[in-house]
Amino acid sequence: MGSIDVVVYCEAGAGQTEASNASLITAGAKLAANQGGRVVCLLVGNDIAEVAGELGQYVDEVRVADAPRHADYDPLTVLGALQKLVVEIDPCAVLFGHTHIGMDLAARLSAKLGTSLISNCFDVQCEAGATHFLRPMYRGRVNAKVAVEGGIIVATIQQSGARQPDLKGGGQVIAIEVEYAEDRRIRPLKTIAPTRSGVDIAKADIVVAGGRGVGEKENFALVEALAAAVGGVSACSRPLVDIGWFTSSSQVGLSGTTVKPKLYIACGISGAVEHVHGMKESGTIVAINKDPDAPIFRIADIGIVGDLLELLPLITTEVKSTRTA
């Protein structure tokens, strides 16, 4: 039986986004159920027996390559393992998390297979015999419903905390050996852990984050003043790290830190998927943005359309007066 099973590549290890595995398996299960196939998970890493056992609860089969030499992510080795699996079980789809590693592997695999890549999906719909993938385009301002004809579907799935996969139980865990690919033109040297300096934004109950909308560096004081008034910490989106105002330990998002405070206030942040990845699990999300169409309002609980230069001082004063009242 071919072309009905679904392969999901799960992550576990340094710099890998394990939290993305859940939505990935949910999407895989949906596709497989539609086809009457199985979900087979591939896991490559070091010291990952526990993760493999855990994932076995949710999928039909886990193939796990667990060895010290897999401690560092090696695209070619994983790609080799994926290609072998594809030949063996002839799946209808291979899914990855929409993470740095998932994006890298998915693009490589789709290029190898000569198929399209459907990246960044936030939903899969199987209805009336048709399968559609939903994904953002144009910086998240437009959604596209995408159809695929023929060939193996290669897709990356956004992390969504809301959807936990259904417990299946009894998934087989099978140890496999994967070889280093023959092509040694890329040689992994080392993994570098992030240097955490200053406050740990992941531990704060309240995070006030500023984005590119802050404009000038002096204006960031307004973000800091509000953070101080509400007893929280300040953080930022990626562009402010890229221009050198802050180090990456202040950055919220996919390539920075994931935070889950009870209150997150986003000031002048548009709400790109990569930023949202790192904060959407927050308790209450407040967004302040001068653009009423900014994608951040779609995940916020409370929104104000306006200029942060005007609004932040007002909020800070109001908070202070409420506190002393």
Binding site: H132, V142, N143, A144, A147, G151, I152, R298, I302
Partner: peptide, 18 residues
């Protein structure tokens, strides 16, 4: 080998919670 096509574009809905 396989073709991806856009079946439909839409504006993202506000989940209504904001």
């Amino acid at each position: 080998a396989s073709r991806m096509s856009i079946a439909e574009l839409s504006y993202p809905e506000n989940s209504g919670q904001c």
